[in-house]
Nucleic acid binder design. Structure first.
Ligand SMILES: [Zn+2]
Ligand SMILES: [Zn+2]
Ligand SMILES: [Zn+2]
Ligand SMILES: [Zn+2]
Lengths: 134, 134
DNA sequence: CTTAATTTGTTATAATATAACGTTTGTTAT
DNA sequence: ATAACAAACGTTATATTATAACAAATTAAG
C-alpha cells in the first residue's frame, strides 16, 4: 500500500480544493468561474489541472455528464477501475465502492483476446430520495 | 421477443445507413460531412437523427469518445445495458455481447438503496492486433 | 377531414476542449 | 552553484461538440 506522495502545484491544488468541497460533480467552466478570484483566468489552466488530477486519481470524469468529481475511493491513486451511480432525476452522483464488483470487472475476459487494463462504469436510475417522491 | 417495428424518417435512415456501414464509431461532424451529398446540411439534423436512433437502440454513444456506433446486439431495442471494449492504440471499438456480464450488471445492487435501470460500461486496453505489435 | 405529434429546415449560439507559443518554476545531477 | 531537463504557467486564438428558437412540412391517429 505504499502511497506515492504527489505534490500538487498551485493551480492543481486550487481546482482540487473546489472539487473536493463540492457536493456533486462540477463542470469545467463552472470551475473556471469559481476559481477566477484565485487568479485562474483561462479554460486551459483549468483543463490542465483537471488532466493532472485525473492522472493521479484524485478526481474522475463522469463521461456522460462532462463533469468532474473527487475520488471517493482510497484505492484509486490511478483511476483504472471506476464505477458511479447517477440519479436521473436529481443528478446525484456517487462513486461506487464495491470490492466484488471491481474484482469481477477487473478480471473480466471475453472471447476477443483483449486484456482490459481499465474500465469505467456508469449506472443510472433513481436515488432513494427521488424514488420516494415519485 | 416481439420486436416493435420502428419506421425511420429520411434523415434517420441516412444517418443510420452511414453508421452501419462504418468500421468503427463515427463523430457527429464527420457524419455531417459525409451526408451533405444526401441533402443534410446542418448539425442539428444529424444530432436529431442520432438522438432518435439512440432512443430506439439502433446505435449507441461511446461516451469517452463522443462518437456513435451501430448496435451489435439484437437485444438492444432500448439501450439500457451497454458494454464496449475500446483499444487505446488503434481506437477499435466493439460492443460486448456477454450474457453473464449483462446479467451480473443488470442485477447489481449496492447498499445505496438505488435500483439501477440502465448502465454503460467501457473497457479499455489493447486489442489482439495491437498487443502483437508491441 | 381534422387534429395532434413528429420531423424538417434554418440561423444563431452555447458549451466543451485543445493548439501553439514563449516564460517561469521546480528537480536532478554534476 | 549551475547546467540540463521536465513540469507547470500564462495567454491568445481556435477547434470541437451540442443545443436554442422558430416556422414550415410531413406523417400518424381518431
Ligand atoms: Zn475513485
Ligand atoms: Zn435523485
Ligand atoms: Zn447494442
Ligand atoms: Zn488496437
Amino acid at each position: 500500500m505504499a502511497q506515492k506522495q504527489e505534490y500538487l502545484s498551485k493551480n492543481q491544488q486550487i481546482v482540487l480544493n473546489l472539487i473536493e468541497k463540492a457536493k456533486g460533480p462540477l463542470k469545467a467552466y463552472s470551475i473556471l468561474y469559481d476559481v477566477q478570484k484565485k487568479g485562474i483566468k483561462a479554460p486551459l489552466q483549468v483543463y490542465r489541472a483537471l488532466e493532472k488530477l485525473i492522472k493521479i486519481g484524485k478526481i474522475h470524469k463522469i463521461e456522460s455528464k462532462n463533469a468532474f468529481i473527487a475520488c471517493n475511493n482510497s484505492e484509486c491513486e490511478i483511476s483504472k477501475a471506476t464505477a458511479f451511480s447517477i440519479c436521473n432525476n436529481c443528478e446525484h452522483v456517487k462513486e461506487i465502492k464495491n470490492t466484488k464488483l471491481s474484482k469481477y470487472l477487473s478480471n473480466f475476459q471475453d472471447n476477443s483476446g483483449m486484456k482490459y487494463k481499465k474500465y469505467n462504469l456508469e449506472f443510472f436510475g433513481l436515488c432513494k430520495n427521488c424514488k420516494l417522491k415519485q
